[in-house]
């Protein structure tokens, strides 16, 4: 056999192989380290949270420390109300903006709008709280559920806009052409044909955005403020699960800590439920096409 020059020595070849194996091991360990926190968080949520959850948690108002049987009923309902208000603000703006991007905008304008949406996405959530505080809390001289809903809703806009654009672009051009050829007005084509075809995708995008904002605390601190009682008027402060978890977690009382864990478990379950819904919706979508 012809001898080949520059063959590495046996030792050098072994060294290279050992180095490669070592790197492989390090990579595996890193991957384990990355997913470990998830399991540690979920484990402690279940351990600490489930022992504090009972029927009272879902039906009662918070009670002062030392009294048995308090719950977070108002915070759970408050979070739902806030999410609903956020949707009222964020979904129309986001969807219409997405329609503009997909159906009307010039390439150059779209590039800028997309870029702006990504920049807006990077605005720290606490900043939204401050801005809405100046817009809605100072003029009306009170913290309010409205302010909290608007803060969360504004955070939804760039998210919903981008996903709406993406799903609308996927609607085949031939659908639009076929409808336009029938003499249907363009806006009707968009609303009746295009948006309806993509409705499931848009809904998925909205739920993704809701899952993202459901756990947000910082934008609510100086808008919704939090409330230990039922909110009977949206012009007044309202409780929210994340706010309540925060307040209880940094309190010095053990029974409140337990309530914080329970609240965290419920919040996490809500967010997981939203994420699972997204998964089911998007699985159907991939099956249909």
């Amino acid at each position: 056999m012809a001898a080949s020059p520059y063959l590495p020595t046996e030792r050098f070849a072994r060294w290279r192989k050992a180095k490669s194996t070592a790197v492989t091991c390090v990579l595996v360990l890193c991957a384990l380290a990355v997913i470990a926190p998830l399991f540690l968080v979920i484990y402690f949520l279940i351990v600490h949270g489930s022992s504090s959850i009972d029927i009272n948690f879902f039906t009662q108002l918070p009670k002062p420390t030392g009294e048995d049987g308090g719950g977070m009923a108002n915070a759970i309902v408050g979070t739902m109300e806030l999410l609903a208000m956020a949707s009222i603000v964020g979904v129309p703006l986001g969807v219409l903006g997405g329609i503009y991007l997909a159906e009307y905008g010039s390439d150059k304008a779209n590039d800028w709008l997309r870029f702006a949406a990504d920049v807006l996405n990077g605005v720290p959530s606490i900043v939204w709280g401050m801005v809405v505080y100046l817009m809605l809390v100072v003029p009306f001289k009170t913290f309010s559920a409205y302010a909290g809903g608007v803060a969360l809703g504004l955070m939804m806009v760039p998210l919903v806009m981008r996903t709406t654009e993406e799903v609308l672009i996927l609607v085949p051009q031939s659908y639009r052409e076929a409808a336009l050829a029938l003499g249907v007005a363009r806006w009707k084509v968009i609303m009746v044909i295009v948006v309806r075809t993509a409705l499931k995708g848009i809904a998925t995008g909205v739920i993704v955005a809701l899952a993202r904002i459901a756990g947000e605390t910082a934008p609510l601190l100086f808008t919704a403020l939090g409330n230990n009682f039922w909110n009977h008027n949206l012009k007044e402060p309202i409780a929210a699960l994340p706010l309540q978890i925060f307040a209880y977690a940094i309190s010095p009382y053990d029974d409140w800590h337990r309530q914080a864990w329970a609240g965290a478990l419920v919040l996490m379950a809500l967010i997981l439920a939203l994420n699972i819904t997204v998964r089911i919706l998007s699985r159907d979508r991939t099956h249909n096409h």
Binding site: M1, A2, L7, A13, R16, K17
Partner: peptide
Amino acid sequence: FGSDLYGPGVEAVS
């Protein structure tokens, strides 16, 4: 050239 490409202990690298 006479050596088994898939022999035991033969490294793809070499």
